[in-house]
Design a protein around this nucleic acid. Structure first.
Lengths: 212, 212
DNA sequence: TAGATTGTTAATCGATTAACAATC
DNA sequence: TAGATTGTTAATCGATTAACAATC
């Protein structure tokens, strides 16, 4: 992962949204400045890590003073690109697809859902949240003509590869993958959300608790 | 994280569900044995890592031969506790809570949804997937009387802490947290699923793509 | 100026990979 | 037995933490 030509470790990138969240909270609380030491206590990380992480992107602080909350929040927002808007489609109008189409978090973050697709004739044509479910056969064309950048994959495992390939073929740049299988694709950004993996991990950790 | 008194790194634990998935696939395909080398190619990890990971839990392989797929699948399943059943409740009958209550993955994994709670009078009493939405005020008693181990948190951010505390007070052992905020609680297992963090990371990685 | 806190280099820690003896 | 592949120790790599000079 690169930013301004500088190589940024993925672990750092994945911490940025959390910083952004905490800074947003502080901002809401009217806090004007914060030191890495104070923030580290709130976030349960080391002050060193915070300073190292932030310095991957530039010096946002001031010696002897700390960080201006509003400025830092704004800067991290810029880095993350939270203000940008993207058109996205959802593939799969089953439980999960349906759920995600109702999930406000997407549009709130600038991810506009412009289409929902399924292969099931019983679902095609039905209305979800003001959008008609379209035939997945028309998905390719739709992507090309509607400037769609992001595909949300919520299809059954056996269709995952096929649908993903179709998305990529028509110029999708990123896939938010909720499918049970890993995606083995190139030149496209994939964010996996393996809910069942998270659940299985939960079950495992629960076992430990019970063994004690 | 401990297993049989042995300390297991969390990074290893989080890889187990993935092994379990791939082994399940191989089993379905009728593959009887596999070497760490072959598996490493399929999974895009090193053979060393696979052997190291598995040996945290015991020697499941056979020198000169590899691993028996069925045996290894079964063993990892046992380690993870995938066969166990747990009662769970969902707090929050909004979009996400509604979605999760319809999400089959939960019950399929032995997580039985026995109750759904909300504080909104308009939602209380309505039917979701065969379960009546109950008043969150009755949640505490419900947990105690229904042997509930797991709480799924899908409430608005401002209620998160309060609802989590109520859950913990009444003996919930683990929380599957979909809320926007981190949970700062002790003696309870927390699995965070920060969908918005995942989305923000996606947006960031997309930016890099566009800058090139 | 004195005190505080950053930015950054150096030290430590942990996780990954390589190597190979053990053994099926 | 010879070949293959594990289990495990040792080497490397990367990420985290500590330390401190720079400086506001």
């Amino acid at each position: 992962m690169k930013y301004n030509g500088r190589e940024i470790a993925m672990v750092v990138v994945r911490r940025l949204p959390r910083y952004y969240r905490y800074l947003g909270d502080l901002l809401n609380q009217g806090v004007e400045r914060i030191s890495s030491g104070e923030l580290s206590k709130k976030m349960n990380v080391t002050a060193s890590q915070i300073r190292q992480d932030l310095n991957c992107f530039g010096g946002f602080g001031q010696q002897g003073f700390g960080y201006n909350v509003a400025v830092l929040h704004e800067k991290i927002g810029e880095i993350l690109g939270v203000k940008e808007e993207h058109n996205c489609i959802i593939a799969g109008a089953g439980n999960l697809g349906h759920a995600l189409s109702n999930y406000h978090g997407l549009s709130k973050r600038g991810f506009n859902i412009v289409g929902i697709f399924d292969s099931d004739p019983a679902k095609i044509g039905t209305d979800i949240n003001g959008l008609a479910v379209l035939d997945v056969k028309t998905m390719g064309d739709f992507i090309s003509t509607h400037d769609v950048e992001i595909g949300v994959l919520a299809v059954p495992r056996d269709n995952t590869k096929e649908v993903a390939d179709e998305m990529i073929k028509h110029g999708i740049k990123a896939i938010w993958n909720f499918s049970y299988v890993d995606l083995d694709v190139e030149d496209v950004i994939v964010e996996n959300v393996h809910l069942s993996d998270s659940l299985i991990t939960l079950a495992f950790r629960l076992k430990e608790l019970e063994e004690e």
